[in-house]
């Protein structure tokens, strides 16, 4: 096979892996949007916050140590213990559930029946708030997250694909972390689908997503469902935070993946879980291939905007996205 084609295939494979990571973030958006009609801009910051909390707990950092030191003139920073990864993940999950409850109790309960755009702006406010809290709690320096996921290029894939090309081709370069992320994402989606199909809470959740008032009338507690769905979104954010954090370090730029997830959503439709996944894959592959073929001609770094422009062009022809419900407007 010609080298150019092989490289294109490699780029496509890497794009697929990146797309899975985008889809992970987009999933959190879709879940909340379906269940409560809130377009949660804070999803990316939630991922950052979850990752920060996980690292903080694992390293035994003292929360708010900067603030405490500034007020009392002390010099504390660590408890001096290390928490094993699994326990730390569980503890972080508990924090995210608490966060979900707080958000529901103190923000969105007071905003029921407001226009969607007001809710959207409230989540932007929430994103800023949470970012500040995260930095204040755990400090804003870049942290490394290591919970024992495999890292580095997969030699197995390289060895087994080297025969495809001729001289100078050493097989496809695929990061093992990406493979792990893909597997985790598949498991996550399977669990979510099983949860929403076969459990009582999952069914209640789908009922709320379908029709709030009808769900209320058969005795489903909206408050509980909303806390539940924010907790699930927190869990998805934690998974996304772990994957992105392990890939590129836990830092502020992690919260910007929320912005990357937006075109994914637009492409897939705001209300569709398969849409989030397919959209993620299309965006991931599309931006990598575009950067590979067109990027060198226009100066590179096209990944910054390609996804948005693609989504924009797509929407002009199909305003509800790939799998979204058809928008019907009445006066």
């Amino acid at each position: 096979m010609p080298d150019q084609l092989l490289f294109a295939i490699e780029v496509t494979l890497n794009g697929l892996m990146a797309g899975v990571l985008y889809a992970l973030v987009a999933l959190g958006f879709v879940l909340i949007f379906k269940a409560s009609g809130i377009f949660n801009y804070a999803q990316g910051v939630m991922a950052l916050f979850a990752a920060l909390t996980l690292v903080g707990i694992m390293e035994g950092q003292v929360p708010f140590s900067h603030l405490i030191n500034a007020i009392f003139g002390t010099d504390i920073h660590h408890f001096g213990w290390h928490v094993p990864a699994l326990l730390a993940i569980l503890m972080t999950m508990a924090v995210m559930v608490l966060f979900a409850w707080l958000v529901q109790r103190f923000i969105f309960r007071h905003l029921v029946n407001q226009e969607p755009i007001i809710l959207f702006m409230a989540t932007i406010g929430l994103a800023y708030f949470l970012e500040g809290v995260g930095d204040l709690m755990w400090g804003s320096d870049i942290k490394t997250l290591d919970i024992g996921l495999p890292q580095g290029a997969s030699l197995w894939v390289e060895d087994n694909t080297a025969w495809l090309g001729g001289e100078g081709f050493f097989g496809f370069f695929i990061d093992r972390l990406d493979i792990a992320a893909t597997i985790v994402a598949i498991i996550l989606v399977a669990v979510l689908i099983a949860f929403s199909q076969y459990t009582k809470q999952g069914r209640a959740l789908r009922a709320v997503a379908d029709d709030h008032q009808a769900a209320l009338s058969v005795g489903i507690s909206l408050n509980f469902i909303w806390v539940l769905v924010w907790s699930i979104a927190g869990f998805v954010a934690l998974v996304a935070g772990i994957m992105w954090g392990a890939k590129s370090g836990v830092q502020f730029s992690l919260s910007l993946i929320a912005l990357k997830a937006l075109p994914v959503l637009m492409l897939g439709g705001f209300t569709s879980i398969p849409g989030a996944i397919v959209g993620g894959l299309i965006i991931g592959v599309g931006e990598k291939l575009f950067e590979f073929f067109i990027g060198p001609m226009v100066g590179g770094a096209t990944e910054n905007w390609f996804a948005y422009v693609l989504a924009l062009l797509f929407l002009v022809f199909r305003p509800q996205g790939l799998f979204g419900e058809k928008i019907i407007e009445r006066v």
Partner: peptide, 10 residues
């Protein structure tokens, strides 16, 4: 500043 700005918006 982040916290206060975000909190005020909400």
């Amino acid at each position: 500043n982040f916290i206060v700005a975000g909190g005020l918006i909400i």
